[in-house]
Design a protein around this nucleic acid. Structure first.
Lengths: 148, 148
DNA sequence: ATGCTAAATGAAAATCATTTTCATTTAGAT
DNA sequence: ATCTAAATGAAAATGATTTTCATTTAGCAT
């Protein structure tokens, strides 16, 4: 289940936060995009919906949503943080380096590797980050149609 | 083989760069540390060796070394970039969240996962990023001895 | 050894993302 | 309808990184 308006309202009130127009706009901007968006990109989209929101609010809202598990951060590549919708539970991202589309996958199964590394190095492994980079099927099929 | 002064001199001249005191200092700072260091941290260390180097040069040198494959970036966690020594070839990092120590490992073997994801999603996978976070054996054994 | 020139450097200023501050507005409980 | 803590927006502050530009220097050519 993707976070909808109802999900947003429920999550916010469950955690003692208020449902505001700005928060609805920010969630809307992210839900309507398959790409990972930087705060600045979210801001641009949100402004079209509601010109009165400020960039600061976007930053604050993204952080809040991230804490609440509604969205999650995408790492790698660029130099500013990016966010995308969060599916439920542990998952990872495949990111298209051409169009920025993010695809999720859940079964990373690194436990064998973790165990072996743990034994070899004495590290107690508490978490990991895994991202794949490549070109999505859409971009692969459009190789010839876009000639810069 | 870890990059030594000789390796540095060879790599630089092979690529048309000059060997300077600053570059030797920066490499020295990184070689002498098992942790990943931010540019600011490298700067602090370098200054002890040679007070006349500027932070800007540290930035420039880290970027150059990174291009030349002498060092590599560590991602995740903090908000500023970090660098650590680069072993030869494809590898990944395990990072101790307590002391910052970085341990390398080379055999990530994600090919099965990559192939499956590629088939399922149509992505053409070109690269990945994998980091483990945890506590190194050293920090684990010092649980009781350091009472803040 | 000496001069030459492009590369490298340092200091200051510029840029860019992000955070803080604080006065004003507002959601949602009463 | 009222109230109050939470939320917001604008501006300023911060912090990391990059750019600019005048000066210095490594390493080649004498």
């Amino acid at each position: 289940m993707r976070p909808t308006e109802k999900k947003l309202a429920a999550t916010l009130s469950q955690n003692g936060y208020k449902l505001t127009a700005q928060r609805r706009s920010v969630l809307g901007a992210i839900v309507s995009s398959h790409e990972h968006l930087t705060p600045a990109a979210v801001y641009e989209r949100v402004k079209q919906d509601n010109p009165r929101v400020g960039l600061v609010t976007v930053y604050r809202t993204l952080e809040l949503f991230s804490e609440l598990g509604l969205i999650c951060r995408v790492h790698g590549e660029g130099k500013s943080q990016s966010y995308t919708l969060a599916p439920i539970g542990h998952h990872h991202h495949m990111i298209c380096s051409e169009c920025g589309t993010v695809a999720d996958f859940t079964d990373c199964d690194l436990s064998d590797l973790e165990e072996r590394l743990s034994q070899e190095t004495g590290f107690e492994i508490e978490g990991h980050m895994l991202e794949f980079y490549g070109r999505c099927s859409n971009c692969r099929s459009q190789v010839l149609s876009v000639t810069a």
